[in-house]
């Protein structure tokens, strides 16, 4: 009996050893760094207590980063959820060519985010990009997109929506397909309209899946970095400076590693709240 007990623990050991080494240890290291004045260009790194955190929370640029990240979160969810849900409902029906269409629509989310950022530079190019060309064709004037502080964040949102709406669509579609058919049959027998069926049957039945996609997307949006780095580097000014970009610039442009560590920890704590909710839902799903 004891031998059977020890065996399984041994199987888990390599995984746990590596994860302690690559996650727990670096995080403790970064926590201690966040309590030091850690400028890479000077040799001494004195202990300063919470000073990095105080500087962080009084830095208007960090406030701006929180605001930009929050706006990005709301904007992207507002675009991606309805679009993704609509497409999922569309694809849940039978139609000709479905087997080909469905995988094509899922492609964007597999593409390297840096490449997506670069595609954005091509498409939104202000003088001769195809998007402004189409706008002109429809009688609208060209927009400055990522090169103007007013529209840069919107451009990031649109680009990320191209990449991640398929995720919303795919997961919601999988949820729709696995719904039990019986309630639908009886509802139709009772003469319910399709709008009623959607509102009183589909939505409530799909609630767990909806909650799941929204929390998963939110956790990813809060970390947005790659496409912004390529498209705007946080600019113009600080118009697209998310928490991720802010942390990178503070740490690796201004070499203030101590404050970058404190910003990274604040982001990690914010995300862990979301992750807790996510895990609760995963636990419920499985029961």
């Amino acid at each position: 009996m004891t031998r059977r007990r020890r065996g399984p623990v041994l199987l888990v050991l390599p995984t746990m050893a590596i994860l302690v080494l690559v996650v727990i240890f670096p995080m403790i290291y970064s926590l201690t760094v966040s309590f030091h004045l850690y400028d890479l260009r000077v040799p001494r790194h004195p202990f300063v207590g919470f000073e990095n955190y105080v500087r962080l929370f009084t830095d208007p640029r960090f406030h701006n980063a929180l605001g930009v990240t929050g706006l990005l979160l709301l904007g992207e969810l507002a675009l991606q959820f309805p679009l993704g849900f609509g497409l999922a409902l569309l694809l849940a029906r039978k139609f000709y060519g479905k087997k080909v269409v469905q995988p094509i629509l899922l492609i964007p989310m597999m593409i390297t985010p840096v490449v997506v950022g670069y595609m954005g530079r091509l498409l939104f190019e202000t003088r001769s990009g195809p998007i402004n060309y189409f706008l002109n064709l429809m009688g609208l004037s060209s927009a400055l997109w990522h090169t103007s502080a007013k529209t840069a964040l919107l451009t990031v949102m649109l680009l990320d929506t191209w990449q991640w709406t398929p995720f919303m669509m795919g997961v919601l579609l999988a949820g729709l397909v696995s719904l039990p058919p019986e309630p639908y049959e009886s509802a139709r027998v009772d003469g319910a309209s399709s709008l009623q069926i959607f509102w009183y049957l589909t939505l409530p039945l799909l609630k767990p899946v909806i909650a799941l996609v929204i929390i998963m997307r939110s956790l990813a949006i809060l970390q947005t970095f790659d496409i912004i780095y390529v498209l705007t580097m946080g600019g113009p000014g600080t118009a697209t400076e998310t928490i991720g970009i802010y942390t990178y610039l503070v740490g690796f442009r201004y070499w203030d590693i101590g404050q970058a560590s404190s910003a990274a920890w604040v982001l990690a704590i914010m995300l862990s709240l979301g992750v807790t909710v996510f895990l609760k839902m995963m636990g419920k799903e499985r029961r």
Partner: peptide, 24 residues
């Protein structure tokens, strides 16, 4: 607990680990 902790690492922000990894 353990598998769920491992799952939660899927959302671990790379920027948080990047700084200590750079120093190490």
């Amino acid at each position: 607990t353990l598998p769920f902790w491992i799952l939660s690492l899927k959302f671990f922000p790379p920027i948080a680990a990047a700084v200590p990894f750079f120093l190490m």
